[in-house]
């Protein structure tokens, strides 16, 4: 409790003086490292290092049944796991509300941007492709939303597409050999802001998150906002929201570029 208070004083004091622990601008990301194809067994994979936050996303593609309300569309399932190894504050057990929120917000950005054309994942009556994206938090140092979205988008954007072969009653999924890529129709990225006292900063690290009053994630593509989520007890004014959308459109360019480079 006391250590938290000291950290909070320190972070707030820095912000009042217009700076941050690592000297970053309020609307600047930490250095980002993106590597794709790191786990060849998965159809797609990516690792994102955002400062010391480290996240891995793995994509597996299988065959399953369509949802009853969308019989001609494939499925997309996104989960996030806050591994106990990633932070002394994470525990084993069923997913916490935080982990569920993280997965659902990442899912919404990717889904609303139409990154995957689920209609193109139809195989035959009662059979569709299912795209599972699992986001593994390996080391926590803040801003899991943007690191997770980037990892998921990069893993999906570089995933290979298995082939389905039906031979009479038998069916077979071919996962190796010469395969094309999973068809990607758009790119979603996100920018997450922390409000601490009267300052709003992009890409909060662990210390900054420990004293933030509110959090706002804005997911977008090149043209429009695709998903938003406000978190925690603090609030934003409509003017702040408008400013943050402007920063998001500007800053997301670098994130999209990372994904484009990984695709090439």
């Amino acid at each position: 409790m006391h250590i938290r208070a000291v950290t909070e004083d320190y972070i707030k004091d820095l912000l009042v003086r217009g700076t941050r622990e690592d000297g970053r601008d309020p609307s600047e990301f930490r250095p980002i490292n993106l590597a794709t194809g790191i786990m060849p067994n998965a159809e797609g994979s990516a690792q994102v290092e955002l400062g010391s936050t480290k996240v891995i996303a793995g994509v597996k593609i299988g065959v399953g049944e369509p949802m009853s309300d969308k019989p001609d569309e494939g499925n997309m399932i996104t989960s996030a796991e806050l591994l106990p190894v990633a932070s002394p504050n994470y525990e084993t057990g069923p997913p916490s509300p935080e982990a569920i929120e993280l997965a659902r917000v990442i899912d919404r950005g990717i889904r609303a941007a139409g990154m995957i054309d689920t209609k193109g994942l139809f195989i035959e009556q009662g059979k569709v492709w299912e795209v599972f994206t699992d986001i593994y938090i390996i080391n926590y140092d803040g801003n899991l939303f943007d690191a997770g979205t980037l990892a998921a988008a990069a893993a999906l954007s570089t995933a290979r597409m298995p082939k389905y072969e039906a031979d009479g009653d038998k069916s077979n999924i071919i996962r190796e050999g010469s395969l094309g890529r999973l068809k990607i129709a758009n790119t979603a990225t996100s920018c997450t802001f922390a409000k601490i006292a009267n300052s709003v900063i992009l890409d909060p690290d662990g210390n900054e998150e420990s004293c933030m009053d509110a959090r706002l994630t804005i997911a977008n593509d090149e043209n429009v906002v695709r998903a938003m989520q406000k978190g925690l007890s603090g609030a934003f004014s409509t003017r702040e929201l408008d400013n943050l959308m402007g920063i998001t459109f500007e800053r997301s360019k670098e994130l999209r570029k990372l994904i484009e480079n990984a695709k090439a």
Binding site: R108, V225, R226, A227, Q229, K230, D242
Partner: peptide
């Protein structure tokens, strides 16, 4: 703004 969620597509 105390709750804000959104999905779909909306311009600024």
């Amino acid at each position: 703004i105390m709750l804000l969620q959104m999905d779909g597509n909306l311009s600024r």
